[in-house]
């Protein structure tokens, strides 16, 4: 696993994709930080929360090549023909991408240092936002890894993870839309449904959909409200995608044999 991790991690610095991801992250975080600094109020929790919106671009860049690149080079076969444990391969690649996001985050740590030196505040909300940042990163990286494993093309892998992450980020909007559509449709007189019950039903539909939304679950961390349940959820979903990635690779191993 360590060998895989080292190899994958070093690959980010031997190709342009790692540096491009660094550049995008540095520019976006820098832009938000400088804007806040110029206004005289710096809330790092707010910055980190905003940065999460850009996962939709950053995660595909970082994860699209994790397995697709091996397929392109033909080195993928080594995973199936050598005594390497596939779980180690999956976890090694996952950790390498996480480490890359960890290094990107140094930029934010520097900004936090500048904030403190400038008399600003780093409070529980900031810590909460950092915790959530890494848990969501884990979730999305695992998702990107899965996308990379299911297809031979880097572009398709990137588009796949982009769409799924976008869908997750829009969950609350989509749920509101679905609830509103239900309400509009069922409120027609022909159905003769009690408006209060209909409203309750639509509200429950919205809540049900939102229950799956990791962003909605973790939204209170930035205010300093920590909860184990959303973190457990993110960790479980990340684990689920890693497991599915493992299953995809296992299937390929049978095919090879």
């Amino acid at each position: 696993m360590l060998a895989i991790f080292k190899r994958e991690f070093s690959m980010y610095f031997k190709t342009a994709s790692g540096y491009i991801a660094f550049a995008i992250f540095a520019f976006l975080s820098g832009y938000i930080f400088v804007s806040q600094y110029a206004s005289g109020k710096v809330n790092i929790a707010s910055e980190i929360t905003n940065l999460r919106s850009f996962f939709v671009v950053l995660i595909p860049i970082v994860t699209m090549g994790l397995f697709s690149e091996d397929k392109k080079r033909g080195t993928e076969v080594l995973y199936y023909t050598t005594p390497t444990n596939i779980a180690s391969v999956v976890i090694g690649k996952f950790l390498s991408a996480m480490a890359l996001f960890g290094i990107m985050f140094i930029n934010v740590l520097v900004q936090m240092f500048i904030t403190v030196c400038s008399g600003g505040v780093i409070d529980a909300g900031t810590m909460g936002a950092i915790v959530v940042y890494f848990f969501l990163t884990a979730l999305f990286v695992a998702l990107g890894l899965f996308a990379s494993a299911v297809t031979d093309s880097q572009i398709i892998a990137a588009i796949f993870s982009f769409l799924i992450i976008l869908l997750i980020q829009l969950t609350s909007t989509i749920s509101a839309l679905i609830s509103s559509t239900f309400n509009s449709f069922l409120s027609a007189k022909v159905f003769n449904i009690d408006p209060e019950k209909l409203s309750e039903f639509c509200s429950n539909v919205e809540k049900f959909i939102n229950w799956f939304d990791p962003l909605s679950k973790t939204k209170d961390f930035r205010y300093g409200v920590f909860s184990i349940s959303p973190l457990f959820y993110c960790a479980c979903i990340a684990g689920l995608f890693l497991f599915l990635t493992y299953q995809v690779l296992e299937k390929k191993r049978w095919t090879q044999s």
Partner: peptide, 19 residues
């Protein structure tokens, strides 16, 4: 598992650490 965990522990394992 998450639904059960949410139902059982989400309230007791929530901590408001804000000032």
């Amino acid at each position: 598992l998450n639904a059960i965990f949410d139902g059982l522990f989400s309230k007791s394992l929530t901590f408001d650490l804000s000032g």
